[in-house]
Design a protein around this nucleic acid. Structure first.
Ligand SMILES: [Mn+2]
Ligand SMILES: [Mn+2]
Ligand SMILES: [Mn+2]
Ligand SMILES: [Mn+2]
Lengths: 223, 223
DNA sequence: AAATATTTTTAGATTAGTCTAAAAATACTT
DNA sequence: AAGTATTTTTAGACTAATCTAAAAATATTT
């Protein structure tokens, strides 16, 4: 059978996301943690995906996606991010509400549906959290971005993405009106507690902890 | 647990649709046929739904929805029809393509999502097949409509709905540009083969078989 | 290089949903 | 009213996905 169950899809997407930064094969335990399940269940599923040639797998050696697996996962990410964009742009959801709903919508199978949705939204390149949306062929648009701690003292940047896109962090950012597109100027860094003083949109001063700064991506402004 | 699985939802919707015309309890076999499954599976599921108090059930006496079951099924119909409307109105799908996709989308759980979608679409009262869309409280809008055979010779009507909304029939209607909103005038009925001669939009003559006429709902025009 | 700790796999059970075949109940004929 | 046909339920088995507990493999420490 050439069909993938919802569960298999969720595993593929989890593996894809764990792959994103490292070229290393992904450990069973890492997947278990990402999927909130037991290592035993992961081993079971890995065997199944391996038999379907969606992952490369050798016992005790970890797992990595095959080309088929990768393109399947990419298509899930595409669907997820397009639906998130739809929810924010057309249905006026806030950026912290959409992830959960998109987790469901990403499993709707129709290719035609997702391509029509893409067109309807004007073929957006980035989702509400600043993450790139792969096109119908699976190509991502990359953007020159740095995390806030890399921005020099005195320099300015535009907030274009977040590392952490969970509810609590996004709600925290809402409190300070730190939405995508906001201008951030780094005023001063304090070695004492690793905090950073910034100015938001040339208006308001704000102190950010290092934990927050590490989760913000900015695009530098060439003045 | 107060949660309904996708499978349970599909059974509830099937029972709801079988209930629509008759007040009689629904037979196991009828459900089996609607769900394309075995009578044994239906009995299993009925027991489960009965334990959850979503249906009233006595052995060999058939099944009917409880109030909870009914409102759950109504909410599914609402979601199905709103998504169908979205697909046609916003994503330019044709009316015969949307049912299959809506069968998936109707299981997306968020109440907020569906209410936002409803607003986004301008709170439509009828779906692309002319079927009424229940509002958030489960109330349907009824419309005075008759099937084409009930329209008197010489009288005119507007096509507002179809009885059969399967692919083959809708594609058949497409061939003659018989879309919702089309004006139909009954010219003559032929007893010989039970066929009917109509004029479409004051322009084109057409012969329809009785089978087709029975599947068309019109609203009479008061001249 | 042994001993210990951690990770991964296997073994065996469980639950939801399905199936076929047989038994039981109900409905229809004569 | 008895016999036949149909419908419905039960019994028992299967698959996908999960779990816990134990065994095996690998990694880390001494
Ligand atoms: Mn997301
Ligand atoms: Mn996102
Ligand atoms: Mn439909
Ligand atoms: Mn419809």
């Amino acid at each position: 059978m050439n069909t993938t169950s919802r569960t298999e899809e969720n595993y593929l997407k989890a593996i894809f996301q764990l792959c994103e930064r490292s070229d290393e094969p992904i450990a069973t335990n890492a997947i278990a943690q990402a999927m909130q399940t037991s290592a035993a269940s992961v081993t079971d599923m890995i065997k199944k995906l391996s038999k379907k040639e969606l992952v490369h797998y050798q016992k005790h050696k970890g797992v990595r996606l095959t080309d088929t697996g990768n393109s399947l996962a990419t298509s899930l990410v595409r669907k997820h991010r397009l639906w998130e964009t739809f929810l924010v742009k057309k249905l006026n959801f806030s950026w912290e509400e959409v992830h959960e709903i998109a987790e469901e919508l990403e499993h709707i199978p129709s290719k035609k549906l997702i391509n029509r949705l893409d067109d309807f939204l004007g073929n957006p390149k980035f989702d509400p959290h600043g993450d790139p949306i792969p096109d119908a062929d699976g190509n991502f648009t990359f953007r020159k971005q740095i995390s806030l701690p890399e921005l020099a003292e005195g320099a300015e940047g535009i907030l274009v993405g977040v590392q952490d896109d969970t509810m609590p962090f996004l709600q925290y950012l809402n409190k300070f009106n730190l939405t995508l597109g906001t201008k951030i100027k780094v005023i001063e860094r304090f070695a004492y507690d690793d905090s950073t003083k910034i100015i938001i949109n040339d208006e308001r001063e704000q102190i950010l902890t290092n934990k927050v700064c590490l989760n913000l991506f900015v695009k530098t402004i060439s003045i």
